[in-house]
């Protein structure tokens, strides 16, 4: 599978080291449609390719948005692109958030750090089909205020009457007047009906486990908790072996997975 050229149309700094790129296919090419939860492989010319969270584009009208944190040579090259530059893109790959299954009930979205990025298209989908869902709750935890993603959009969401969004940080600076603690605290405080709730979680693996545990304490059955997992995807089509997690290829069976199907494997260290 070869990457297809896409043009960077805009680049927005989210935090000191994280950027959101908006991409458009070259003229005459079709925009690949990523379902919420799916991921893409983004290629920086001559440097390499990495899996990236698609943080926007559930619809053909939006540009495709990818949120990238600069941690290695490829992500640094991608974050350094300027509008007009061309990058390569493969995808969509992998599984999607269970948004069809979750209709008619409450949706609890638990995000940690950069984990909000792949959940953003899910939030957009739910808001675009608002009457199909019950209460919609977003619990977002981050390290500190300056490491939160999509700040302006968080403000917009906070202003909506049909969405309960709450944000909490581990470390509060003097300017932070919001909640301080871990994201599980928000799950404890949130008002939802566990008997008809679907929970979508994305973030560091430790947070996922504790998040799922808190949801279980709140009465949400584990088979209605879904997590998005990070693994070292290279080929993205289950042929290179890198992203194996027990019997699963995270690039194909994941990244979104029903929690009860991965929970036993999460308990095995260094899997």
């Amino acid at each position: 599978m070869t990457p297809r050229a896409h043009r960077v149309v805009s680049r927005r700094g989210e935090t000191a080291d994280t950027w959101t790129l908006a991409l458009e296919p070259l003229p005459g090419e079709e925009l690949p449609l990523f379902a919420p939860g799916q991921f893409g492989m983004l290629y920086a010319f001559g440097v390499g390719e990495i899996p990236i969270s698609v943080s926007g584009a559930s619809t053909a009208l939006d540009p495709l948005r990818c949120t990238v944190r600069s941690v290695g040579s490829v992500s640094a090259a991608l974050c350094a692109t300027a509008p007009g530059d061309v990058v390569g893109l493969r995808g969509p790959f992998g599984s999607r958030w269970p948004l069809a299954e979750a209709t008619a009930g409450d949706v609890v979205i638990v995000a940690g750090g950069l984990g909000l990025a792949p959940l953003r298209p899910a939030i957009h989908h739910v808001l675009a089909h608002r009457n199909e869902y019950g209460r919609v709750i977003v619990c977002y935890g981050g390290r500190s205020a300056d490491e939160l993603l999509f700040m302006s959009e968080l403000e917009v969401w906070r202003g909506r009457f049909d969405l309960d969004i709450d944000v909490i940080v581990d470390i509060a600076g003097p300017d932070w007047h919001g909640k301080v603690g871990v994201v599980t605290k928000l799950v404890e405080l949130a008002a939802f009906d566990p008997d008809r709730t679907f929970a979508l979680l994305c973030g560091p693996e430790v947070m996922l486990r504790f998040g799922a545990l808190t949801l279980r304490k709140r009465g949400v059955p584990v088979e209605r908790c879904y997590i998005s997992m990070e693994r070292n995807m290279h080929c993205a089509i289950a042929q290179c072996g890198h992203c194996q997690f027990g019997p699963k290829f995270i690039c194909r069976e994941g990244p979104v997975q029903r929690y009860d199907e991965v929970e036993p494997w999460l308990k095995i260290g260094e899997l």
């Binding site: 899996p51 969270s53 940690g112 973030g203 990070e230």
Partner: peptide, 9 residues
């Protein structure tokens, strides 16, 4: 400090 550099890229 789970958000420290250990999350999705």
């Amino acid at each position: 400090d789970v958000y420290g550099r250990a999350t999705v890229s």
